[in-house]
Simulated assay, not measured.
Amino acid sequence: MSKIERDPVTGYTTTGHDWNGIKELNSPIPRAVIIFIIVTHLAALIGWILLPTWPLGRTFTKGVLEVDQKTDLAADIAAANTARADWMARMATLDFDAIRADPDLMARALETAAPLFGQNCEPCHGKNGIGGPGFPQLSDNAWIWGGTSEDISKTITVGINSAHPDSRFAQMPAFGRDEMLDRTQIGMMTSYVQSLSNGFIANDPSEAATLFQDNCAACHGEDARGVEGTGALNLTDAAWIYGGDAASIWQTLMNGREGHMPTWQSRLSTADIRMLALYVEAMPGKLQ
């Protein structure tokens, strides 16, 4: 029978383990730890009884309180929709001038549209509508299909080159790929189009200007300022969708362009679309 050894300082017995003269004491678990373990186990047991806890195949135990966060969330959403039903109905039916004339309604529209823009528009048009390669900037005054709330609302609704039956349509021909212009002419047109940002020269007798009038003026206008509502850009300003450098213009003339914007009619409500239109119309930079 082994001899029980007791530590003379603490009074605790030893476990018999010895490491180079250092002996392990058989000290009891602190009372605070025991109390903590008991309390946490009791809390877990109470939680199992009161709250949804254990999976049971395709279902789970509901708990005495029958707490259901999905139901609570649905109820909260329904309450929020009810609370804003009145002004949302006005948003969907009033004309834009009437909405702008109502400060409270306009404030609600801009506040509500901000997250809508972030969720649905920002991935392409960028934060604050700054645009990016292939996607036009929305915070300036350069518009292809019109920059009023009415025009913007229609564009959001039907899209551009989308599946909507009333979609806006625009396509830049591939002058080089489809052999409408040869490479020399493409080069001349590239330099000419790039120079338009410095101002259009009327009655320009150059060959490049003649090529422009013969091939481009029908869409971009004889003065190269574009025709709003046709999808043709103003080539005399600093706003470019695909880039205004020589290489980008060459690619555009050679291979053409065909942008795409989806129709949002099936995803957003009429009120949502109209709020977004007001939000985009009011973006910083519009009146500068």
Score class of each variant (00 low, 15 high):
residue 16 G to Y: 05
residue 203 N to Y: 06
residue 47 G to E: 03
residue 135 F to I: 00
residue 89 A to G: 14
residue 284 P to S: 10
residue 59 T to H: 05
residue 221 G to H: 07
residue 18 D to S: 11
residue 184 T to I: 11
residue 156 I to H: 02
residue 143 W to N: 15
residue 164 H to G: 12
residue 55 P to S: 12
residue 158 V to T: 13
residue 234 N to W: 02
residue 185 Q to A: 07
residue 171 Q to V: 15
residue 188 M to H: 11
residue 214 D to T: 11
residue 83 A to F: 05
residue 89 A to Q: 14
residue 7 D to A: 09
residue 247 A to D: 14
residue 65 L to F: 11
residue 219 C to V: 04
residue 26 N to R: 13
residue 148 T to N: 07
residue 176 G to N: 12
residue 191 S to Q: 13
residue 3 K to S: 10
residue 246 A to H: 05
residue 14 T to D: 01
residue 150 E to W: 05
residue 259 G to R: 06
residue 53 T to D: 02
residue 82 T to P: 00
residue 204 D to A: 05
residue 17 H to P: 00
residue 81 N to Q: 15
residue 170 A to N: 14
residue 91 M to N: 06
residue 246 A to P: 00
residue 108 R to D: 10
residue 158 V to G: 03
residue 215 N to H: 14
residue 244 G to I: 08
residue 233 L to G: 04
residue 129 G to I: 06
residue 8 P to V: 12
residue 110 L to K: 03
residue 2 S to G: 05
residue 125 H to A: 04
residue 60 F to V: 01
residue 133 P to M: 10
residue 226 G to I: 05
residue 42 L to R: 02
residue 224 A to Q: 01
residue 278 L to K: 02
residue 184 T to A: 12
residue 47 G to N: 08
residue 132 G to F: 02
residue 159 G to W: 04
residue 149 S to Y: 02
residue 46 I to T: 09
residue 287 L to W: 05
residue 98 A to N: 04
residue 181 L to R: 06
residue 253 L to N: 09
residue 224 A to D: 07
residue 2 S to C: 00
residue 163 A to G: 13
residue 106 M to I: 09
residue 179 E to G: 06
residue 83 A to V: 09
residue 56 L to Q: 12
residue 62 K to G: 07
residue 106 M to P: 01
residue 212 F to T: 07
residue 35 I to D: 01
residue 106 M to C: 01
residue 59 T to E: 07
residue 59 T to D: 07
residue 63 G to P: 08
residue 164 H to P: 10
residue 17 H to G: 00
residue 233 L to V: 11
residue 170 A to Q: 15
residue 199 G to Y: 04
residue 156 I to D: 00
residue 220 H to M: 06
residue 231 G to V: 02
residue 217 A to L: 03
residue 103 P to F: 04
residue 84 R to Y: 07
residue 143 W to L: 09
residue 277 A to K: 04
residue 239 A to E: 12
residue 220 H to K: 04
residue 190 T to R: 14
residue 69 Q to V: 15
residue 114 A to L: 00
residue 277 A to M: 02
residue 198 N to C: 04
residue 205 P to Y: 04
residue 42 L to T: 12
residue 265 Q to A: 13
residue 134 G to H: 06
residue 251 Q to A: 13
residue 65 L to A: 14
residue 40 T to I: 15
residue 67 V to K: 10
residue 23 K to T: 11
residue 129 G to Q: 06
residue 74 A to C: 00
residue 85 A to C: 04
residue 85 A to E: 08
residue 127 K to D: 00
residue 228 E to M: 13
residue 9 V to H: 10
residue 140 D to A: 08
residue 49 I to T: 05
residue 216 C to W: 01
residue 195 S to P: 06
residue 197 S to Y: 03
residue 128 N to E: 08
residue 223 D to S: 14
residue 235 L to Y: 02
residue 158 V to Q: 09
residue 160 I to M: 12
residue 146 G to P: 06
residue 252 T to D: 03
residue 3 K to V: 13
residue 235 L to A: 08
residue 242 Y to T: 11
residue 21 G to E: 09
residue 204 D to H: 08
residue 5 E to G: 03
residue 140 D to H: 10
residue 36 F to K: 14
residue 247 A to I: 12
residue 227 V to W: 01
residue 20 N to A: 12
residue 139 S to L: 03
residue 217 A to P: 01
residue 200 F to R: 10
residue 165 P to D: 07
residue 184 T to K: 12
residue 198 N to D: 13
residue 96 F to K: 10
